[in-house]
């Protein structure tokens, strides 16, 4: 039993890792079809089940909160009701044939005049963009406190951010000469020093990704399996 719980998953990771790695060196039809099948059916199904588990966990958390009448349980009730309505409109109604589910390739929100489409356009989209637009205020206030030109590094950061912000609006084109304005300066910063620094960081990221992948394939890194027995 210990073998099935501890060693077998490591062997599975090794076998699948090596199989899909070596597949790259054999570009035959069968090998490509294996990669295609794994990355479409296998990975998507497994990720989908992980998503279902995550949603179940979130729903269970809120159900428990409502059942125990803990502080703020009313908000949890709102979450559960909204989840139920969205899930019913997007999943259950198409499943029982009340609304055409589509071909399966076309996402549901692209089908107009369905309750799910209404929820998407009038609830999900406004909430999404308002939450992220709020960050503009918080980022600006955080910058006001953090961006003090106390050192050389902070001054450079402040200058680059200011040039980028001013250069991204029409006003930036008015600052400077006809041949060189803030908009051009922002573009130059983005395309040259920023690209160079990003490239230096990316080399490190890519090499670390490969190193981590090798550690996982060869069973050195096992934390993804979780703890316990």
């Amino acid at each position: 039993m210990v073998f099935l719980k501890r060693q077998f998953p490591v062997i599975l990771a090794f076998v699948f890792g090596m199989l899909l790695w070596l597949q790259y060196y054999v570009p035959s039809k069968a090998s490509n079809s294996m990669l295609e099948s794994f990355s479409s059916s296998w990975l998507i199904t497994l990720a989908g089940c992980a998503l279902i588990l995550g949603v179940f966990s979130a729903v269970f958390h809120h159900v428990e909160k409502v059942k125990a009448r803990r502080a703020g349980f009313g908000y949890s009730l709102i979450t559960l009701v909204c989840f139920g309505i969205t899930f019913t409109c997007g999943f259950i109604l198409p499943l029982i044939g009340r609304i055409a589910p589509g071909s399966g390739i076309e996402p549901i929100p692209t089908q107009p005049d369905t309750p799910f489409d209404w929820i998407f356009n009038n609830v999900q989209v406004p909430l999404d963009s308002t939450v992220f637009s709020l960050l503009a205020f918080f980022v600006a206030s955080a910058a006001f406190r953090a961006f003090r030109a106390r050192s050389m590094e902070a001054t450079v950061l402040l200058l680059a951010a200011c040039i980028m912000m001013l250069g991204r609006v029409a006003f930036g084109e008015m600052i400077g000469t006809q041949t060189l304005n803030l908009s051009d300066a922002a573009e130059w910063i983005l395309n040259n020093p920023s690209t160079g620094a990003q490239r230096g960081i990316l080399f490190g990221i890519y090499l670390s990704q490969v190193a981590l992948a090798l550690r996982i394939i060869f069973g050195i890194e096992k934390t993804y399996l979780g703890g316990g027995s």
């Binding site: 949890s76 979450t79 909204c82 997007g90 999943f91 996402p107 929820i119």
Partner: peptide, 24 residues
């Protein structure tokens, strides 16, 4: 909390119709 509930339902629904149904 409306956002949370709708986002959970939306994410699950889209993933099902878009990925799980055609691929599995």
């Amino acid at each position: 909390h409306i956002y949370l509930g709708v986002a959970l339902g939306y994410g699950l629904t889209i993933y099902f119709w878009d990925s799980i149904k055609p691929n599995a």
